[in-house]
Design a binder for these strands. Structure first.
Lengths: 200, 200
DNA sequence: GAGACCTTCTAACGTTGTTAGGATGGCTGT
DNA sequence: ACAGCCATCCTAACAACGTTAGAAGGTCTC
């Protein structure tokens, strides 16, 4: 009876295909085109089949969010190889903004407040972990003791996502947003270095 | 024939009532409850009447966004009376985040990427103007010449909105986000002051 | 008072997420 | 090898959404 194993494999396979199709539709046609029926026809199935793999649309979208963060981490990986810690910090800042610009619809879903907050945090965990690592290395390298490490980490995280969101608004544009991210990081880090004496 | 004037007044009145009803529903029941029929019954009309005052739902929502920014400015007004410029900066930072926490659904719509980017920028104009004013007063007070004023302004704006969005995610919470906003502003300003020599 | 106009309603269309019920087809046990 | 079971899939439908068409009603103008 290897049949059940094969079935399980097939199930997982179609589940993966659904996610990939959904991602493809989302990136190419935007969030409004991401409907259950549209996804189902893309994988050559009928709409209810999707509900055999995901409880509802929100669960599927959540999977896309997680996938988006993994993709972001992958694209950031090569930037993480920059040896100089300061340059790496700035590079990762601008590259994370660039990601938002190159995957606008995906990034929009990643930051959509309609998806559950806790689940979104869990999906963003690797990104936050990267920032923590970066910040510890930086503070070690410069002998800076941050008054509140978690606070500084959240500030960096919030600043980057805020500036990335700025990239699609009005006259800003993405390449300018990348500059903004670098400058913001530069200023924040300089501010923390200037704090050396001690700060409340 | 004062009748046409009265009619125009009535039209404007119901238009206003629609906006207020929509705002009330949005703030109390969230974005998913904000449907045309729900708004229409709230003002004791039938659904199509809404379309005599707004081209479509997006136009109505855009009006809510503008209203939201006006409300934000009004709530920030009393914080703007703080005489010390540095304290005023920090206060406005935390108060703007507090606004996001006290009007979560409204703030969500204000930052929703589905509404047109240009219109959103126009609605946010007063807020950006306030930040510009604040930043010029601050740089004047401390004899700081910012390498790129508009850039610094956008950084502040992006940072604040990013940290405000952080307030609803995961374990952050609003009062902590307020602290984060103050600390972030503090660090940014300190960073710019440390830049005094000159910076690319 | 007749006719034009403005306002409002009911009804409907197409689309969305989602569920129910029936058909189909392969696996299991004898 | 055949009967029965179980997973899978599809068609059809429901409620709710944004939006439009067309009729009904009242109000003002001449």
């Amino acid at each position: 009876m290897p049949t059940s194993a094969r079935r399980a494999r097939e199930r997982a396979s179609t589940r993966e295909r659904i996610i990939e199709a959904a991602l493809h539709i989302l990136e190419n046609e935007g969030a409004t085109a991401l409907t259950i029926r549209r996804i189902a026809t893309a994988v050559e199935y009928s709409a209810p089949v999707v509900y055999q793999h995901f409880a509802n649309k929100d669960a599927l979208v959540l999977e896309l969010v997680a996938h988006g963060y993994r993709l972001m981490m992958a694209e950031l990986q090569q930037a993480a190889e920059e040896p100089d810690i300061d340059r790496r910090f700035l590079l990762l800042a601008s590259e994370s903004v660039r990601f938002a610009g190159e995957h606008p619809h995906l990034y929009q879903v990643m930051n959509d407040n309609t998806v559950d907050a806790d689940e979104r945090l869990r999906a963003a965990a690797p990104m936050i972990g990267l920032l923590r690592e970066l910040l510890t290395m930086w503070s070690d390298a410069h002998d800076v003791v941050l008054a509140d490490f978690d606070e500084a980490c959240d500030i960096v995280w919030g600043t980057l996502s805020g500036i990335a969101s700025l990239g699609r608004i009005g006259t800003v544009g993405n390449e300018r947003a990348q500059q903004l991210a670098q400058k913001a990081m530069h200023t924040l880090l300089r501010g923390w270095r200037a704090d050396l004496p001690v700060n409340a």
